[in-house]
Design a protein around this nucleic acid. Structure first.
Lengths: 152, 152
DNA sequence: TGATATGGTACTGCGACGGTACTATATTAG
DNA sequence: CTAATATAGTACCGTCGCAGTACCATATCA
């Protein structure tokens, strides 16, 4: 139902890097500094740019910088952006459509299934946590050696 | 980092079924009643039995029944049991070892990485929610037609 | 003894994830 | 103008875990 992958992990590290000082940084710089696979990170950042979370500048002194206030971005939105980076086209790539939000939430809660109950809690959690709560200037950035995973 | 799969979903439905009246029920009965794949559900229930969440009785009038108070089981424990059902042997199959709990939590929080911050929130969430909060007698049980999923 | 049920184990198809490669385009420096 | 750097876009691939199946052993009830 919920899958937070390495992409999310990498994206989070990159965001922390960018948030620290608000400066512009290239994918290569970020990747090398934190030991992330460069090519993969580039793809992830491309996706985040397509979703409007990052702004990009091409060319020699180019790179990525934050385009939105991280305090205004919920974990829900973030996961949606990262995990659905593939389809950069539309706003809503639909990969989180099953997790009802907003007006749908009431409808879901009313159906009262155990799965729906979990869904409800999950969405609430994801909406409450802001990316800024996780990624804050001054935090120590490091990538865990082992995967922080429940299973896989 | 976190992966709630169909197994979790099915297990939740089964638990709801068993909680409703506290009666014994066979895997076949549960599977047929809620349209779950029978063979798969059997495997899942076997796993939960191995972890002590369910008690089983063989034979004609046999089946599964709850063995623990669901109000005492956190979502964290539950996910660990379901997702790690494969290794029924030991208590701790280790698949959630990366998500620090208890005394480890402080250590994790101190390291202050963005990933650790997320980890912290996640573990808190998983520990706060009790299975009984999701699975309650009287709830309507139904399996969603579409997968309630964030991605996969 | 036969039917029903779990226990255990082994197997499999498929798709997503993690990661790579290549080409095009834009920007800066010399 | 050219070389270097950087993103944009797209296509590609290997591996691995999930979802699901199958089979045999064992226990219980009628």
């Amino acid at each position: 139902m919920l899958c937070l992958s390495k992409k999310t992990e990498y994206a989070l590290v990159a965001l922390a890097h960018l948030a620290e000082g608000g400066r512009i940084a290239s994918a290569r710089e970020i990747a090398h500094e934190h030991g992330l696979p460069q090519a993969l990170l580039m793809n992830i950042l491309k996706g985040l740019q397509g979703h409007g979370l990052l702004a990009s500048t091409r060319g020699v002194k180019g790179g990525y910088r934050l385009a939105r206030d991280l305090a205004a971005v919920s974990l829900y939105d973030f996961v949606a952006m990262v995990e659905c980076a593939a389809q950069a086209g539309g706003e809503d790539c639909g990969c989180m459509e099953h997790l009802a939000v907003g007006p749908e939430l009431a409808r879901v809660a009313a159906s009262h299934g155990p799965v729906q109950a979990l869904q409800l809690r999950l969405v609430r959690f994801l909406n409450e946590v802001r990316v800024a709560d996780l990624v804050m200037p001054g935090r120590r950035i490091d990538v865990p050696l082992e995967r922080l995973m429940v299973k896989r």
